[in-house]
Amino acid sequence: MRSPGWLAAAGATAAALLRAVVFCGLALLVVPLVCAQDAAALLARHGALRLQLESNPFQRPLYLESSQRAGTLQGDIYARFEQPFAVLGPALQGREHWCDILILHPNVKSCRPAAGDRLRLDIGRNFEQPLADAHLFEFRYQVVKATPDYLHLALNAERGPLGTSGYRMALEVVALDAQRSFLHMSYAYSYGLAARLAMRGYLATAGRNRVGFTMVGRQANGQPIHVGGMRAVVERNTMRYYLAIEAFLGVLSTPPAQRQERRLELWHASARRYPQQLQEPARAAYLKMKRREIQRQQAPEQEVR
C-alpha cells in the first residue's frame, strides 16, 4: 500500500489532500475483483497468457494489466513460479504470514493479527513515522477456497478514510505440474470526489512525470511510452505488492532465522529493477526503516500506540 506522492503544500487543506492521496495510493479494491475462483479457470488463463508470459519487458514469466472505469482502478499480475503448489499453498495461508508479506511495502508501518479473522494495518508514508501519524485499517482475512491444487484468498476492509469503504485484495494460486505454480494477484480501489481532487493535484505536480509499466506507444526514437495518470498509480502499487509476495516466497528454503532480513533485501533489490516506475527509498534507508518497524510490530501493541 504505497502513497502515489505528496503534495508540496501546507495548512489544513493541504493536509486533507495528502490524506486523500495516501488513500488513493493505498486502498485495496472497492469493487469485486475478477478471479478465476477455481483451478480449471486459472489454468485456462495461464494458457491464454502463454505468449505474454514467454515474451515481455520484465524478461521473466510475468504479465501485468490495469484498467480504469467509472471511478474504479484495478491492477492484476499473473506470474509463473518454479516452485510446487505443495510449498506455496501452505506458505500463503495464515494471517501471520500475511503480516510478514505486507510489512515489506514501504508504506505499511505495522501489521498485526487481531480478534477473529482480522488484520490491523497501519498505513503511512515511505519513511519512519509514529503510528499515530498513520491510518489504521482493519481487514478481514478469508480463505475463499483451498483444495490440493488451488488456493483463493481475500483481504477485505469495510471502512477507510474520507468515508471510503469496501477495500479488498485477492490472491489465487494453482498447480501447473509437480514443480511449478501459477499465481494471480488483484489489487484495486474506487475513489470519490475528495480523493479524486487530491489525486488530480498530485498528478499535476509531484506525480506529473511518474509512469506505470504498460507500454502505450513509442517515441520517434523508438523508446517506449508508458502509461501515466491514475492507471500508472495502480500499476506501481500492484507491482509493489507482488514483489512483497515474491520476496516472501523466495526465501522459504532459507533458514528461518535469516528469512526476515533476506526478504527485505530481496524486496528492495527487485524494486530497483524498475527505477523509472518504482522510486523507492535508498537501500540503507529502507532496511533501517523496516528493521525498526518490524521490531515495533513484534512488541506488545499497548507499548507502541
Rank of each mutant, 00 (worst) to 15 (best):
55 S>V: 15
55 S>Q: 15
55 S>D: 10
57 P>Q: 15
57 P>Y: 15
58 F>N: 01
58 F>L: 13
58 F>K: 09
58 F>D: 01
60 R>W: 03
61 P>A: 14
61 P>E: 14
61 P>T: 12
63 Y>P: 03
63 Y>R: 05
63 Y>N: 12
63 Y>L: 13
64 L>R: 08
64 L>N: 08
67 S>I: 06
70 A>T: 11
72 T>G: 01
72 T>D: 09
72 T>E: 06
73 L>Q: 03
74 Q>H: 05
76 D>W: 01
77 I>H: 00
80 R>A: 13
80 R>D: 14
82 E>C: 00
82 E>H: 11
82 E>K: 08
86 A>R: 12
86 A>K: 10
87 V>G: 04
88 L>R: 04
89 G>L: 09
89 G>C: 07
89 G>H: 01
89 G>V: 06
89 G>Y: 03
90 P>Q: 10
92 L>N: 00
92 L>W: 06
94 G>W: 14
96 E>W: 01
97 H>L: 06
98 W>F: 10
98 W>N: 03
98 W>D: 01
99 C>S: 04
99 C>W: 00
100 D>V: 05
101 I>G: 01
102 L>K: 07
103 I>D: 00
103 I>R: 04
104 L>D: 02
105 H>L: 12
105 H>F: 09
106 P>D: 10
106 P>N: 08
107 N>E: 06
108 V>D: 00
109 K>C: 06
109 K>E: 09
111 C>L: 02
111 C>H: 03
112 R>T: 03
112 R>E: 11
112 R>S: 10
113 P>R: 05
114 A>D: 15
115 A>Q: 12
115 A>C: 12
117 D>A: 09
117 D>F: 03
118 R>T: 13
119 L>K: 00
120 R>C: 07
120 R>T: 06
120 R>M: 12
121 L>V: 09
122 D>G: 07
123 I>Y: 02
123 I>L: 13
124 G>S: 11
124 G>E: 07
125 R>I: 08
126 N>L: 13
126 N>K: 13
128 E>M: 04
128 E>L: 07
129 Q>I: 09
130 P>G: 12
133 D>C: 08
135 H>W: 15
135 H>D: 14
135 H>L: 08
136 L>G: 07
136 L>P: 06
137 F>A: 03
138 E>G: 08
138 E>N: 12
139 F>G: 02
142 Q>L: 12
142 Q>T: 15
142 Q>S: 14
143 V>A: 11
143 V>N: 05
145 K>F: 08
146 A>M: 05
147 T>C: 13
150 Y>R: 07
151 L>G: 00
152 H>M: 11
152 H>L: 09
152 H>Q: 10
152 H>V: 08
153 L>I: 14
154 A>Q: 12
157 A>W: 11
159 R>T: 14
159 R>F: 10
161 P>F: 11
163 G>F: 06
165 S>E: 14
166 G>E: 06
168 R>P: 03
169 M>W: 12
169 M>P: 04
169 M>H: 09
170 A>G: 11
170 A>L: 03
170 A>W: 00
171 L>H: 01
171 L>N: 09
172 E>T: 10
177 D>V: 08
178 A>T: 09
178 A>E: 14
179 Q>H: 11
181 S>D: 04
183 L>H: 04
183 L>D: 02
189 Y>G: 14
189 Y>C: 13
190 S>H: 02
190 S>I: 04
190 S>V: 01
191 Y>I: 06
193 L>I: 04
193 L>F: 13
194 A>E: 09
195 A>P: 02
195 A>R: 02
